[in-house]
């Protein structure tokens, strides 16, 4: 019997090998490398190399120097996620319940922007929001914008860009969740004296929560790390943490600072996600 157990154990471990390898190669090693880099002596350079001095001070330094871009990243991502949630919910709801035979076509249309590159899409927004573009001019014409006001280079432009770019990440899980809701449950709620508004919040919304949670995570996490939107739609006063990491790594060649920023961003996001998932009561998703 002991032998049998041992053999089964062996097979179990064997089956775990691919996943373990995958995790090792694509997560553990890069992450280990990243953490190690973040603890290098920041006075190192390509010429002199980097010494491992367990320089934890890096973290305090970057937090002190770059807390603004951190906050901006989180703030912009949170706003964009909220916008995505509202727009995405309406869209997903309409596709799931009202689209009928157009359902598949509409889903394809939601994903269609992915057929062009992220960069090109963001650059198109730069053109759309451009100071001399028709959007700004129309808004100026109806006096929603003053003659000197602009859309580009404002936080609103970045948030709009993020919301646009990550909307499909919100819509798809939301759709998957809402589509599974039996329309008869909504009928049942109206049969049981819930007006459409109450019925939505007592039945549809709670049943779509798994989609809401995964959609907001799938939107918020990449949005918080994104710097393309800030790069193309913002100005020098709206740079986000992604810009800093990119600049530190590529332009300033300061790998330890860039690495500690990255680790910090990761920790902050993981912490926020944990709190959020707890609060949403959907631990089973993790």
């Amino acid at each position: 019997m002991a032998a049998g157990v041992r053999r089964r154990g062996k097979v179990g471990y064997l089956l775990m090998v691919p996943a373990t390898l995958w995790l090792l190669v694509f997560f553990v090693v890069p992450f280990y490398s990243l953490v190690a880099t973040s603890l290098f002596d920041p006075s190192g350079s390509d010429f002199r190399g980097y010494d491992m001095t367990y320089h934890w001070q890096n973290y305090a330094d970057v937090l002190q120097a770059y807390w603004r871009p951190f906050l901006r990243s989180i703030w912009y991502a949170a706003l964009a996620t909220l916008i995505c949630l509202v727009l995405g919910y309406v869209l997903a709801y309409a596709i799931a319940f009202k689209a009928g035979r157009w359902k598949n076509l509409l889903l394809v249309l939601v994903i269609a922007p992915f057929f062009t590159s992220f960069l090109v899409r963001t650059l198109s927004w730069q053109l759309i929001l451009s100071d001399h573009g028709w959007v700004v001019r129309s808004l100026q014409f109806v006096h929603l914008l003053g003659p000197e006001d602009r859309l580009l280079a404002t936080p609103a432009a970045i948030v709009a860009g993020l919301a646009y770019n990550f909307l499909p990440f919100m819509v798809l899980p939301l759709f998957a969740s809402i589509d599974k809701i039996d329309p008869r449950l909504v009928e049942a709620s109206s049969d049981l004296y819930a007006n459409p508004f109450v019925g939505f919040f007592k039945v549809t919304w709670p049943l779509s929560l798994p989609g809401v949670v995964s959609g907001t995570l799938l939107t918020f996490i990449p949005a918080a790390g994104d710097y393309i939107n800030a790069e193309f739609l913002g100005s020098t006063n709206q740079r986000v943490i992604g810009n800093v990491i990119q600049g530190q790594f590529v332009d300033a060649n300061n790998a330890p600072v860039a690495a500690s920023l990255s680790v910090l961003l990761m920790l902050i996001i993981v912490a926020m996600v944990l709190v959020y998932v707890r609060r949403a009561g959907t631990e089973e998703l993790l």
């Binding site: 039996d182 008869r184 449950l185 009928e187 049942a188 709620s189 109206s190 049969d191 049981l192 004296y193 819930a194 007006n195 019925g199 007592k202 039945v203 709670p206 049943l207």
Partner: peptide, 27 residues
């Protein structure tokens, strides 16, 4: 529907899966 003094036992019941039995009945 929510204004009518009429209630329905649905085919396949349409119980609210996210609520317990008590809350289903109390709805």
């Amino acid at each position: 529907p929510h204004q009518r003094p009429v209630n329905t036992v649905f085919q396949n019941y349409a119980l609210f899966p996210h609520l317990d039995i008590f809350e289903n009945v109390a709805f």
